[in-house]
């Protein structure tokens, strides 16, 4: 599970079955120092409250499909929490 910064939103009206009703956000993965690293990903918002600019944490692969209701929605990245603070 990694830190990410929400940098935008994605709207896709034509999409696969099962993807309806979910908000898709552009997430830039961050390293531990919260610097951008790697390519942005499109993640479904499993907390239904994340918005651009927010620091979040997200899961990938099967864990992303497990994060949404109903289970096994065909997504490979999902935001599972909004970070209030990282205390190191």
């Amino acid at each position: 599970m990694q830190l990410g910064r929400v940098t935008g939103t994605v709207v896709a009206t034509v999409k696969s079955e099962g993807l309806e009703g979910f908000k898709f956000l552009v997430v830039q993965p961050l390293n531990k120092q919260q610097e951008p690293v790697g390519r942005p990903v499109i993640a479904a918002d499993a907390v239904y409250m994340a918005g651009p600019g927010e620091l979040v944490y997200f899961v990938a692969s099967r864990e992303a499909a497990e994060a949404l209701e109903p289970r096994f929605v065909p997504v490979d990245h999902a935001i599972v929490g909004i970070v209030d603070q990282v205390m190191t």
């Binding site: 907390v47 599972v80 929490g81 909004i82 209030d84 603070q85 990282v86 190191t88």
Partner: peptide, 23 residues
């Protein structure tokens, strides 16, 4: 373990669980 992540808005699974950021 190098710290912990404080989060109040999260997927129900993480309610009440400690999130530690680890190298």
């Amino acid at each position: 373990v190098s710290g912990n992540v404080v989060s109040t808005i999260n997927h129900p699974f993480f309610d009440g669980r400690a999130l530690m950021i680890c190298d």
